[in-house]
Design a protein around this nucleic acid. Sequence first.
DNA 1: CTGACGAACTTTTTT
DNA 2: AGTTCGTCAG
Length: 724
Amino acid sequence: MDVTTIIEPLNDAQRQAVTAPSGALLILAGAGSGKTRVLVHRIAWQIEVEGLSPQSILAVTFTNKAAREMRSRIETLLNVSAHSMWIGTFHGLAHRLLRRHATEAGLPDTFQIMDTADQLRLIKRVLSALNYDEAKWPAKQVLWHINAQKDEGIRARHTAETGDIYQRTMLKFYRAYEDLCERSGLVDFAELLLRVHELWRDNPAILAHYQQRFQQVHVDEFQDTNTIQYAWLRLLTQDANNLFVVGDDDQSIYGWRGAKIENIYAFQRHYPDHQVIKLEQNYRSSGNILTAANKIIAHNSGRMGKELWTQSGIGEPILLYVAFNEQDEAHFVIERIRAWADKGGARNSIAILYRSNAQSRQFEERLMQAAIPYRVYGGLRFFDRAEIKTTLAYLRLLANRHDDASFERIINTPTRGIGAKALDDIRTLAREQNSSLWSAAIALLQSGQQAARAANALNGFLLLIKQLGDQTAPLALCEKVKIVIEKTGLIAFYEKDKDNKGEEKVENLEELVNAAKHFETASLPDGEENLTELDRFLSHAALESGDMQADAFEDCVQLMTLHSAKGLEFKLVFLVGLEEGLFPSQQSVDDIARLEEERRLCYVGITRAMEQLYLTYSESRQLYGRESYPRPSRFLREIPADTIQEVRMRAQVQRPVASVNIPAKPALLASINQFKTGQKVRHEKFGVGVILQTEGEGKHERVQVKFPEGIKWLMLSYAKLEAV
DNA sequence: CTGACGAACTTTTTT
DNA sequence: AGTTCGTCAG
C-alpha cells in the first residue's frame, strides 16, 4: 500500500499527529478539524508504516456509532478487514474482557448486563426490602449516588461507616444493592468499568498480558472520560506511554454525568513526556460562524486555548431573529426552512437545535402544518421499548432463573392473576431465606400457604417458564424468541390492545425475531466462546440499545437537543430559545462551572453550522404553564456584533391579546419617562407592584416588578403597565 | 386488576 | 400546560 494515501489528504498539524513517534500524545481537536480522520489515519499509519499488527491496536470510543464509523473508515482506507482490531466503546470492551476473565473478576460465567431501567427496578426492591419510604429516599437519587460512587471507583466496603445519616443510609443501600446484584448475576454499566479496573489492578499477570498485547491505545472524545475510565487507561499504558488521546476541552458537555475535563490536565501530569498537537483549521464552517464561536468560548476560564480558523472566507452573516413568543419563533424558523427548501436545499441538511426536549413541540406542530417531513432525535430506542424489554426479560429468565430484575418484570406481564400480595409474599420469603425470587416462588408454592387461586396462578407461571425452558433449549435463537412471544401470550396480549399502539408493538416483536435471526448469522463470538448464543444476544441488546432505524435516510429536517447534535454538522442550523433561564438553563446560572459548561454547549451548537446559522429568542414564552418574559441569553452579547445581523420580519402571527392594542411608539415613549425604580404600577393580571429595576431600551426595555405573588420581569412594549 | 383522580414534577444522555 | 406517578375505589 502506498503511504501517500495515508498522509496526502492531511494538513500539517494532522500529519504531525498521524506520524508522530509512539508516545503519549494529546491531540486537541477543535470542532470540525478532522479528528476522526486523524484517529483513522494514525491507526493506518501504525499498521502500514510502523508495522504494527492489527491485533495490537486498541481504540476506545463512547458510542457504538462512533466505534462503527471508525472501524469502517479504517477498512475503507486500508482496504482490509479491521476485525482483529479492538475497536469499541469503553463498556463494550470491558464486557469483552470480563467474559474472558469472568472467574478472575469474581463473576459467574453467565453474568448479564442490566441497563438503567433494570437497575432502578433492583434499587426499588432494595429500598422496600430494607423498609425505606420511597418518598423520602427516591430510588432515582439512590441510583445516582451508587453510580457516582462506582464512577469514582469507590466500593461500599471502601467507605467508612461515618458521616451523616444520609451518607450512612446511602452506604447501606449500596451494600444491599451489591449483594443483590451478586446473587442475581447482574452487572450494571458502571460495574463493567469498575470490574475491569479491579481485574487489572489485582491481577498483574492479566494486566501485563494486555499491556503487552496493546502496543497502541487510542481514545476518542477524551474530554468525556470519567475517573474510572481514565484510571483504566492509565493502568494499561502507564509503563509504555503508548496512549494517543483525541479530545476538545471546549466541547466537554457531559460534566453532569461524571465526565472530568480535569483528565486532560491529569494526562499532562501523568505522562511528562507527552506531546500536545492542536488541530485548529476548520473544514466545516464559514468565517463568521467561527469568529462567533471563538469569541464566545473565550469567555471561559482555564482553557487549553485554541482558535479555529478557515480558508473558506467569511461567508454569510449570522442572522438573529427576535420573536414575540414561541409560536412566532417557530413560525419564523419554518418560513426560513421553506425558503431554503424552495431554493433546492436538502431538508436533511437542516437542523433545529434546542436546549431542552420540551422545546421541540412548537416546531413539530408548525412543521406538521406545513407538511414538511421532520425527524426528532432522542425518542425511545429499539431495545428500550417496553414490549421488547419484556420479551428480553423472559429470555433472560430462561438463561438464568435467578435474574431477579427480569423475574419482577414479567411475573405478571401479561397479567395472569399474580397480584401485589403474591409478589410481596415472594419478596419477603426471598429476603428471609436470602435467595432469588425464583427460588422463593417455588418454596412459597410448596409451603401451601397461599389461597387456591393465587397458588394456581403462581404455579401456572412457574410451569410456563419451565416448559419454555425445556421446549426452547434445543432451538436456534430466533426460534426461541418466536416461541417465547407466542407461548407467553405476549403477542395475543398486544393484539388485543387496540389503543392504536398494540399493532405497532406486535410489529416490534416480529422485528425482534428478525434481529435475532440476523444476530445468529452476523455475530462471530470472540472472547465469548463459552457463552450460549442466547447469552450473547442478551448482552448485545443491553450494550447496544439500537439506533432508531428507518427514517434515517429520508429527507427530513432534523430536530434535536444541543447535546445530541455533538459530532454532527448541517448546512443550515437554527439555534433557538437563546434566553436566560432556558439557555443557559436556570439551574446553571449561579454556578460558574456549570455556566461554563452551558457556554461550551453553545459553542458546540454554533460550530454545527456549515453555511448559515440562525439564532433566535423570544420575548415571551409559556414556561411550566406560566407566561414568562425572559431576558435574551448572555451568550448573544458575547458574539461580536459585526458577525450578526438582525432579521426584521413583518408580524405574521397575532401578538398576544394583552399587547395587541398597544402601539409600539407610545409604549416606547412611556418607558423613557414614565417608569422609574421604586415607582408603583398596576398590571391587569398581577395587580399592583413596585418597580425594582429597569434595563434595555426602546422596544427591548423591560422592568423588574415586585408583585404580591412574586417578582417578574416584564417587557414594557407588551405588558400593559399603568402608573399608580 | 382496571380506571380515575390528584399531586408533583419539569436540562442535558450513553452505555 | 402537560406529563407522569401513585393511590384509591370499584
